[in-house]
């Protein structure tokens, strides 16, 4: 039963969706503060390569090495995000162009591959990799075993993050403040909320989560480093935030849906089911579905209630005093 295609697809949907989920949650935090960061792909790649490097370099027990690797990946993502934050928050550069610049700088043909080559990380499996957290007996339970209980610790951390970010945004004072900063920065500023500090903080945390998302790929999903290994996941994560109407719970649903779509082709190949001429469609599915979802999300009638933060993409300029 646990080998049926449906169960396997859902289980690998969770596994493939976890990098997307981390990155989307990070982007969600940045966007909620009013900063659009299109550099997710680049931040993920730098997180992926630095996490992999840390995993290789520290000669410590597995658990500690992996924990260190995640911390390094988060820091690397945050440093990348800091460049974007400085440009768009302090220097008021165009957020779209700056985000694209970040992807070019850090992306598949930039810093991540520079580091991968310079540190000679290609063509070898990860020294330590994340494996299932819970005992074998639990993993073998029907259906819930592979889907819920057979996952690695990063999956469980991402669940905690979904709940935590949801509560943070709706039930805490900093959460209220960050939403105000993203919706109406001048109103927030009038009430003494430091718009700049909130935007920096959330953009940086967003970058850190994107970095962790990247490391999830190189240390758990496919434990190796290949230049450009994210293959557009960062962009799908950006689209996911729109699809999820800027809500963490819906991010989880969307991430697992797209994770499952990404898993379809490799899973069918693993079962030597020949795709024939449909290979093009199966491979294109995640991208085409994302386009479709964007269209549906954009033309929905609930946009006013659920739409983008009011000040998303705009620099906040306090009037001269």
């Amino acid at each position: 039963m646990n080998n049926s295609l449906a169960v396997v697809l859902i289980a690998s949907g969770v596994a493939y969706g976890t990098p997307l989920l981390f990155a989307a949650l990070g982007e969600l935090l940045a966007e909620r503060s009013g900063v659009l960061n299109l550099g997710v792909e680049g931040m993920m790649l730098v997180g992926a390569v630095m996490g992999f490097w840390a995993d290789e370099s520290f000669h410590v027990p597995t658990g500690i090495a992996l924990a260190l690797a995640i911390v390094v990946a988060a820091l690397a993502g945050a440093v990348m995000a800091a460049v974007h934050a400085f440009l768009v928050i302090t220097l008021r550069a165009n957020q779209i162009v700056s985000g694209l610049a970040l992807t070019i700088f850090a992306g598949a043909a930039g810093l991540s591959s520079y580091l991968g080559n310079d540190l000679q990380l290609s063509d070898k499996p990860a020294r330590h990799a994340f494996g299932p957290l819970l005992p074998k007996a639990l993993q073998n339970l029907p259906v819930v075993g592979p889907i819920l209980l057979g996952q690695n610790i990063l999956v469980y951390i991402s669940w905690i993050l979904v709940v935590g970010i949801g509560l943070y945004l709706t039930r805490t004072r900093p959460g209220l403040n960050v939403r105000a900063v993203g919706e109406a920065p001048s109103a927030a500023d009038t009430m003494g909320i430091n718009v700049t500090a909130y935007r920096y903080a959330h953009t940086l945390v967003g970058g850190a989560l994107a970095g962790v998302g990247g490391a999830t790929i190189t240390l758990a999903l496919t434990p190796q480093w290949v230049s450009g290994i994210t293959g557009g996941s960062g962009w799908i994560a950006v689209a996911l935030v729109i699809f999820a109407f800027w809500r963490p719970g819906l991010c989880l649903v969307g991430a697992y849906f797209f994770g499952a779509l990404q898993a379809v082709a490799p899973e069918l190949q693993a079962r030597s089911i020949s795709l024939g001429p449909t290979v093009l469609w199966t491979n294109s599915l995640p991208y085409l579905m994302t386009v479709l979802v964007l269209v549906v999300a954009a033309s929905g009638t609930a946009r006013r209630r659920l739409g983008a933060p009011g000040a998303l993409g705009t620099a906040y300029v306090r009037e001269a005093r």
Binding site: R173, L176, R179, A184, A187, G192, I193
Partner: peptide, 26 residues
């Protein structure tokens, strides 16, 4: 200077330093 998508109550407690909205948890 109101946040359009907030509720009336949320607008009032924004930046609150003395009332029911001053704590970390709201």
């Amino acid at each position: 200077h109101l946040v359009g998508r907030f509720t009336v109550a949320e607008n009032l407690v924004l930046g609150d330093r003395r009332g029911a909205g001053r704590r970390f948890r709201i």
